[in-house]
C-alpha cells in the first residue's frame, strides 16, 4: 500500500485545520515576540541579544509544539475521529509520526521567528548554522513528543493543557535558558539534567554564542535518546489505554 499518501494527507489535513488557524499561529509568533520585548524593555534597551536568543528560540519551540498536541490528539480522540485513524491500515508508529510531523515543522518554523527579527538588529555572522539547525530540529522533535506523551496520557483537552503547563513552566526555569544551571541551588541541578530542553537549549547556546556547557555531540545524543524514549512510551500508552 502507498503509505506515504496516508502520511501526507494526515499531515496536510492537520496543517489546514489546526496549524493555520489564528489562535495557534499566535502561540508561535506573538508569544516569543512578547518575551523578547519583555526582556528588551526590562534591560532598558541595553540587552545582550545573543545571550537571549537561544532561550527565546527554545521557548518558541516548546510552546508552539506542546500546545498543538492537545488539539490534534486529545481533541480528536474525544470527538472520536481518531478512531478512523486507528482503523486505517497503517501501523500505529507511522500514524503517530504523521500526526506529530506537522507540530515538529511548526515548532522549527517558530524558532526562526526570533532569529529573523534578531538578524535585523545584530550581525549573525558568528552563528554555526549546521549545529543551529540540528539543534532546532531535534528540540522541536523532543518537545513535540513530550506534548504527545502528555496528550495520550489524559482524556480531556483541558487536562492536556494543564499538564503541559505543569511541565513547561518549571522546565523553562530549570533548563538553564534564563538562569544558568550553575546558579541553581545544588539540589535542583540533577533535575536540570533529566530535562530534554537543557540539552536543546545548550546546543543553541553553542551554535549562537559558542558557550555550551556540554559537548554538542553529547547533547545531540541525549536529545535523540529522549525523542526515542518519549515516542515509544507514547505509542505504548495508546496501545494499552486506547485499544483496550
Amino acid at each position: 500500500m502507498k503509505q506515504w499518501i496516508a502520511f501526507w494527507n494526515i499531515f496536510s489535513k492537520d496543517i489546514r485545520t489546526y496549524y493555520l488557524k489564528p489562535p495557534n499561529l499566535s502561540w508561535g509568533i506573538i508569544f516569543p515576540l512578547a518575551w523578547t520585548l519583555m526582556f528588551f524593555i526590562r534591560s532598558g534597551g541595553d540587552v545582550d541579544l545573543f545571550a537571549l536568543l537561544p532561550g527565546v528560540m527554545t521557548m518558541s519551540i516548546l510552546f508552539g509544539t506542546t500546545s498543538l498536541l492537545s488539539v490534534t490528539i486529545t481533541f480528536e480522540k474525544k470527538g472520536r475521529s481518531f478512531e478512523r485513524l486507528l482503523l486505517a491500515p497503517i501501523s500505529l508508529e507511522y500514524l503517530m509520526l504523521a500526526k506529530t510531523s506537522g507540530a515538529i515543522m511548526f515548532g522549527a518554523i517558530n524558532a526562526f521567528v526570533p532569529l529573523i527579527i534578531a538578524a535585523f538588529i545584530v550581525d549573525l555572522g558568528a552563528v554555526s548554522w549546521a549545529l543551529l539547525i540540528c539543534g532546532v530540529v531535534l528540540t522541536s522533535v523532543v518537545s513535540t513528543f513530550l506534548g504527545l506523551f502528555i496528550a495520550v496520557a489524559v482524556s480531556e483537552v483541558f487536562e492536556a493543557q494543564t499538564f503541559s503547563n505543569f511541565f513547561r513552566f518549571p522546565m523553562v526555569f530549570l533548563c538553564g535558558l534564563f538562569f544558568p544551571i550553575e546558579r541553581l541551588p545544588v539540589f535542583l541541578r540533577p533535575l536540570s539534567y533529566v530535562l530534554p530542553l537543557t540539552y536543546g537549549g545548550d546546543i543553541l547556546q553553542g551554535a549562537v554564542n559558542q558557550s555550551a556547557l556540554m559537548p554538542s555531540a553529547l547533547s545531540l545524543a541525549a536529545l535523540v535518546v529522549f525523542c526515542a524514549g518519549l515516542f515509544l512510551l507514547s505509542v505504548r500508552t495508546i496501545r494499552v489505554k486506547w485499544i483496550c
Partner: peptide, 28 residues
C-alpha cells in the same frame, strides 16, 4: 467500518472528508 456515531471531521466539507478517508487507504 461505519460506527454508531458519526466520527467524520465536522469542520471539513463532505467531499474533503471522503477524500481524506480514501487517502488513509493509500488511494491516489
Amino acid at each position: 467500518v461505519v460506527p454508531d456515531e458519526s466520527n467524520l471531521y465536522p469542520e471539513m466539507s463532505g467531499l474533503d472528508n471522503l477524500s481524506f478517508c480514501a487517502s488513509l487507504y493509500g488511494m491516489g
